[in-house]
Amino acid sequence: MFGHFTFYFLDFSWWWFIGLFFAPDTGAIGYVFNAKIGAFLYNLFHHQGLTILFWGIGFYLHLQVLQLIGVILFFHSAFDRILGYGLKYEKGFKFTHLGEIGK
């Protein structure tokens, strides 16, 4: 609801939302280096607090690009939680705060 409501008031076409929806998953590139860096970057790109921070700063400064980043991050991370993908542990990609993926 938060994402839909806030995106509605931005001056971006819906294709921006669709096109950027999976952009936060680029944080998984850290797993190329090791699990610790991978978990840190993935968690940074999927942290709900960061989403609210981006949106709030964008709202306060009237910068719709920051608001868009916040909305995309929020929607994407919420979608991941619905699918059972949580914040990652340093043990490996499949170990999350919601449990092990693919058990």
Rank of each mutant, 00 (worst) to 15 (best):
M1Q: 10
F2S: 01
G3Y: 14
G3L: 04
H4Y: 12
H4E: 13
H4N: 11
F5G: 01
F7P: 02
F7C: 02
L10E: 08
L10F: 07
F12Q: 07
S13P: 13
W14C: 01
W15H: 12
W16V: 08
I18G: 08
I18Y: 13
A23F: 15
A23K: 02
P24L: 06
T26V: 14
A28S: 15
G30D: 07
G38T: 09
A39H: 09
F40W: 14
F40T: 08
F40R: 12
L41N: 11
L41C: 13
Y42R: 09
Y42L: 05
N43M: 08
H46Y: 06
H47K: 06
Q48P: 15
G49Y: 11
L50N: 15
T51D: 14
I52F: 15
I52A: 10
L53S: 08
F54N: 08
F54A: 13
W55M: 02
G56E: 07
I57N: 02
L61D: 04
H62P: 00
H62F: 14
Q64E: 15
Q64A: 12
V65S: 14
V65P: 01
L66M: 15
L66F: 15
L66R: 11
L68D: 02
I69H: 03
I69L: 14
V71L: 04
V71T: 10
I72S: 04
F74A: 13
H76A: 02
H76N: 12
S77R: 08
S77F: 02
F79L: 13
F79M: 11
R81V: 12
R81F: 12
G84F: 05
G84D: 03
G86F: 05
Y89E: 13
Y89F: 14
K91N: 14
K91C: 01
F93C: 00
H97L: 10
E100N: 04
I101M: 12
K103Q: 14
K103W: 03
